[in-house]
């Protein structure tokens, strides 16, 4: 081979090889068995992160000076469901949070009852799965108290949060779920205030979940009901959340 043909051959090989590799990656990305295999990476992250961090390890809390000038809102920013619009029009006076499922003491609470629960105020960093972060001050009811009052069945493992908003092209109801460890964490709140003001609609009024050691998509907005379950296989796509049904990990730890 002359230098020229060799060079051309190498170039073609590189370009062709590169293209074939990328096409191969796209082909594999469409295969369920391959997606399930890759997902083991995030399962391993879940196991290792839980092994190396204490159950009650606290997320860092910032000072008022650190609060972001505007707290970005992602996903739904103004739910269009008629039921929700009516609640909002009336300043959420008719809002009721339902707590049910595998509990001995199902409850229905209005906002006054939720505000009467033991509360906590914390300035924390919110990390979106997209990559950005925002710092805000949240005030809300401690979820642990509510869970204790509802008295979950010993077999209960998860809390499922059903939301008022529908999202995406499929216009599917938003929902999320967390385990009992996060439900009992002192920083896990049902927040009704952001930066000292009533929670804006864009950020999830009247009630949104704060799970400070996970990514933003876990922190369901417009929470209407909490269902205590042993498994979430029977709910929507069966993966435990709106984004989980669309390929995101259930444990949003990184």
């Amino acid at each position: 081979m002359t230098d020229n043909t060799r060079r051309r051959f190498l170039k073609t090989l590189l370009a062709g090889g590169g293209l074939a590799t990328l096409t191969g990656c796209d082909y594999l990305s469409e295969k369920t068995w391959f997606r399930d295999t890759l997902a083991q990476g995030e399962t391993l992250s879940d196991v290792v992160q839980h092994a190396v961090t204490p159950r009650k390890a606290m997320a860092r809390e910032y000072t008022p000076a650190d609060i972001s000038p505007s707290f970005r809102a992602n996903g739904t920013t103004d739910p269009d469901a008629v039921e929700y619009r009516m609640l909002a029009a009336n300043g959420f006076r008719d809002y009721r949070l339902k707590v049910g499922g595998m509990v001995e003491n199902p409850m229905t609470l209005d906002l006054a009852a939720i505000r009467a629960l033991p509360s906590r105020t914390q300035i924390t960093r919110h990390d979106c799965v997209e990559g950005w972060s925002a710092i805000g001050q949240w005030t809300g009811a401690r979820l642990s108290t509510l869970v204790e009052q509802a008295r979950p069945h010993p077999d209960a493992r998860y809390l499922v949060f059903h939301c008022a908003d529908r999202y995406g092209r499929s216009h599917s109801p938003y929902y999320e779920s967390i385990d009992m460890e996060d439900a009992h964490h002192p920083q896990t709140l049902l927040a009704y205030e952001l930066n000292g003001e009533p929670l804006p609609i864009a950020n999830g009024a009247p009630l949104r979940l704060r799970v400070e050691r996970q990514l933003g998509y876990k922190m369901a907005k417009y929470v209407m009901a909490i269902e205590v379950v042993e498994s979430f296989d029977h709910i929507a796509g069966g993966k435990g959340g709106f984004w989980e049904d669309r390929g995101y990990a259930w444990y949003a730890g990184i």
Binding site: A57, R125, R213, Q214, G253, I254
Partner: peptide
């Protein structure tokens, strides 16, 4: 690792 909110606790 520092981009993980849970790992940031430690």
């Amino acid at each position: 690792l520092c981009m993980s909110p849970r790992m940031d606790t430690v």
